[in-house]
Amino acid sequence: MSFVTQHDGLSDSMRISSARPSDYLALLKPRVMSLVVLTALAGMLIAPQPPHPVIGFAALLAIAVGAGASGALNMWYDADIDAKMARTATRPVPSGRVTPGEALAFGLVLSALSVFTLCVVTNWLAAGLLAFTIFFYAVIYTMWLKRSTPQNIVIGGAAGAFPPIVGFAAATGSVSIESAVLFAIIFIWTPPHFWALALVKAEDYARAGVPMMPNALGPDRTRLEILIYSIVLAPVGVLPALMGFASLVYGIVATLGGLAMLFYAWRVYRQREGESARKACMSLFGVSILYLFALFLVIVIENGPAALVVRAFSAAFV
């Protein structure tokens, strides 16, 4: 039976936990997990010899649970910050549905389980990379960078960019330039994506004392950096097609998506006051999610279902 400390000022009093499974699921940050699954799957499928479907599924599950575990560790450590921000105040730990100790135990157990599973199912390199990703997100980003530098999400973005490399390593036991390119796309995409939201939620971050770029260096500097990162992102996003491990269709989607990112980043740069500025930021935030989702979805489709159809067609008629 687990107990939770009451959030009514009576710190010594205990009550029996009313946490539901959905609260524990929320600790895993399911929306982030879904993007991790997609990007790791893309990394897996660009491998010269993709893994057996069952092995691939198990590996993908381990990577997703590892990402979720790092999310739980993040929510354990950041409960004080989360409680001060409207966007995160209803999370399981700050709202009192799950105790910090339970979140910590949950995160640690799932971290160990996911790394062990990936090791047993695939190889040491993939498991080691997953362990490093969890460590990077929970310790380097959450415990260190987030509260100490406005470059927090730039460097911390590496944690979110690792899944394609882990996926590729799970399939091949090695790391390649192709998986590094997918890493670079997510890494460069992260700052404009997060800073667009941070511009809108600047007051929240200021209240919580988190030195996000808009609070630490000002909104003007943030807008300029968003534009610069978007200018770099647009050509990097097309690299998979230029390097030959993604199709022309991908190249077209990446080019149009990159132009859309540039257009909305330019709007954020130009519109700095009032409701129109807020709308521009939220539009860029939404478009950035669609952009990354579209790029990796195309890679998954053309290396997954589409490749299977082509192979079956070739076997039948060629």
């Binding site: 936990s17 009313s18 539901r20 499974p21």
Partner: peptide, 10 residues
Amino acid sequence: PEQAKSRRSR
């Protein structure tokens, strides 16, 4: 009843 229900679901 609420605690029993959540414990059962866990």
